[in-house]
Design a protein around this nucleic acid. Structure first.
Lengths: 253, 253
DNA sequence: GGGCCGACTTGACCATCGTCAAAAAGGTCC
DNA sequence: GGACCTTTTTGACGATGGTCAAGTCGGCCC
């Protein structure tokens, strides 16, 4: 088993935000110390959330806001026709449940891709804190705006780029996010299966598979099942950075 | 010139929200009367914003939040490679400038597609009101969440559906929005050109043109330049409603 | 270990939609 | 009206990526 094969288990067993390894990634760093102390008081630290367990379903009323401490989570929506639309993947430090922020009901579903640990904040407590802290409100707006920007980025990727570019962008984005969490950006394990990747990128399983194989053949990456090694980061970046040549030219300004 | 050919000029010259024809479409209806009174005091009613005039550019710091009173507006972003990504079209009653809500800088650009009138609220005034009204905060969060949901919908449309379905959805969406504004849902004029539609839907100009022609050939719509008449709404809805047959089957759950 | 099942890969084929090109329609200015 | 330019339409062609099908790999249970 290669090093870093779990990929997303970097949190310890702390019981205070101040000791938490994830502190620099967590929104808790953005509020002031006594607000944080108060947060500490209401947080439920949950572990043993196993693979395929749902954190919430679309339409459900929100019970808590959660920060992922270890593991990884898939966010998706279900269309009226019943098929799945993968909207993102959460890694440690990410906030889960913002989609219920305004209506009180979750817009989409979230499911664990592997064993997870979480910090959960009951909505009641959280809303009370929101009512009293303009700072916290601001932080939430920022987080929401970030999700928005992410959705827009995804829109560009999914709608307008060819398969190779989409896959390259996916790998680089994941790599960068892992690196920010102190993990090896060049050697990691995908916690989602090909179906999820394909769905997320708006492609088929076969195309994802073929594209990964092609990237390997070209010496850009090395793939073996869920294990990925980035061999030629420069080449991968060039692919992702929208070489005019490698890209269908859909109506642009 | 057919009736309703302007399509988006339904606001009068009122100087109070209470008299405004758009009241039922505007977020002003959601706040309480004295907040609205205060809003009235700071609103600048601007007209004569002509075609191709920009309301703001991406990266610019926000000067005001605006509600469109008449005309229509295109929202877009510019990628690092310099091409345009149309993210949406605003109609009367829509709020413009939410993209700057958290950072203070506009994420994208907004440009008038035809002569427009606006209600502008200077950011300073608006922020002050925000700091004092939890209700207004809530309304803003709701609006932001709605834009988010819209972005997600667009993601589905652009990434996963075939050209015919995309165009059908586009026409139906526009029709529904016009109807909500008291205009004819079956006969209207597109204020955007084919390039904008194509870009918005992640297609080429040619494909949009061909698809519109095909829909006309099939007796579903009638098109003449920018003028559109929906002839067979039922058929159009069926196309849009994702008939399993007419749709490439990209990885779905 | 062996069998089984699902995940993944690979190949052959073909539809959709992008590309290139040219003509037609529409708008503006004189 | 006529010249000129932009927008839109239409056609021919080809590449990308979806579909169908058959294999290979890997994990899990006995």
């Amino acid at each position: 088993m290669p090093p870093n094969s779990e990929g997303t288990d970097l949190a310890g067993q702390e019981h205070s935000c101040n000791d938490c390894v994830l502190f620099s990634l967590c929104f808790a760093q953005d509020i002031n110390p006594d607000e944080r102390e108060r947060l500490n008081g209401v947080i439920r630290r949950r572990q043993g959330v196993h693979r395929s367990a749902h954190l919430h379903h679309g339409g459900q009323s929100a019970r808590q806001l959660a920060v992922l401490r270890s593991g990884s989570i898939k966010a998706y929506q279900v269309s009226r026709e019943g098929d799945e639309l993968v909207t993102g993947f959460y890694l440690p430090g990410d906030v889960i449940g913002l989609d219920a922020f305004s209506t009180g009901e979750h817009a989409g579903s979230a499911v664990a891709l592997e064993e997870c640990r979480l910090c959960e904040i009951p909505v009641n407590d959280f809303n009370k804190m929101l009512g009293e802290s303009p700072r916290l409100n601001q932080v939430m707006l920022r987080l929401l705006a970030e999700e928005m920007a992410e959705a827009r980025r995804l829109l560009l990727v999914v709608g307008r780029l060819d398969a190779r570019t989409r896959v390259a962008l996916f790998l680089l984005s994941l790599s960068r996010r892992l690196e920010r969490r102190g993990l090896d950006p060049d050697l990691f394990r995908l916690s989602m299966d090909r179906r999820d990747i394909a769905n997320y990128l708006g492609l088929t399983i076969e195309t994802v598979s073929r594209t990964l194989s092609a990237l390997q053949r070209d010496g850009v990456i090395h793939v073996r099942g869920k294990n990925v090694r980035i061999v030629d980061r420069r080449a991968l970046s060039e692919l992702a950075h929208l070489d005019e040549s490698s890209r269908p030219q859909r109506a642009a300004g």
